[in-house]
Amino acid sequence: MTAIAWQRRRATAARFWADFRSHRSALVGLGILLFFGLVAVFASVLADPAGLDVTKATAPAHAAPSAGYWLGTDQNGRSVLTLLIHGTRVSLIVGLAATAIAIVIGTVVGVMAGFYGGWARSTLMGFTDWFLVIPFLPLAIVMATVLGASLLNIVIVIGVTSWPGTARLVCAQTLSVRERPYLERARALGGGDWHQMTRHILPNVMPLVLAHVVLTVSVAILSETTLSFLGLGDPTRPSWGYILDNAYGTGAMSNGEWWFVLPPGLCVVLVVLAFTLVGRALEVVLNPRLREGP
């Protein structure tokens, strides 16, 4: 029994990978993500964390790239490359953690709304719609200001403001799954709400959620950059947005210090692009409707 199940799972995984592999751009995206993932994990090996300590910096501020400082220095004489490498870690952590929050809230709300229907659905979806129509940036700025600037708060702000999309998606999928015969069977055999939701509905909406997660991460990273650039990020943890904020705040833009501005911008674009490429491919692979065509 289990052997058969494993065999089937292996076959599914192989099919999935073959499908995924057929999307060339998705592989490019995956490659980029792998690269940034490794940079984030080995940040401390690649660049000495002591380089983040302002009191240890000896180089002149706003220096152009040189042999010792490949990407020049920031306003405190720290290497921009070191900041960038450690910023990768912060940006990715915030992106992933915020997404986790958003996905958990979105999935719980979506499944509950779809499964129970009726007034529960109208209430929950009404609430979701309400969140959906509030413009993201003002809400995030207000929350970040009230909560104060720290890494955890930024994660919470982004997480709490980006779940409604997931909730809508999950709710719609739940509605269709709920009507399927095997759920009727489960109900007839006396399966409780909890059992139905966790054993039958969740596994069936999961692929969709997964594809959505990857897309949400890119939005979350972009949001983190935006908030940090607006000076609402954690000033003690250099993220890419933080580097951009410092560059802007200390006149690097009008001095034409491209080494201070361009690299963090490029990193953001690359990571967001990579997540989007992978996410779109996953969507196509996992969602049969997108695959079958007319």
Binding site: H23, S25, S254, N255, G256, G265, L266, V269, L273, R280
Partner: peptide, 29 residues
């Protein structure tokens, strides 16, 4: 001045990158 020239270059490169990203995404679709 050198400063504003640098700014122009920075902006231009930024636009190019964003444009490239957009193009890739479109092509992908």
């Amino acid at each position: 001045s050198g400063g504003s020239l640098g700014l122009v270059v920075t902006v231009a490169v930024g636009v190019l990158i964003l444009g490239g990203a957009g193009f890739l995404a479109l092509r992908r679709r």
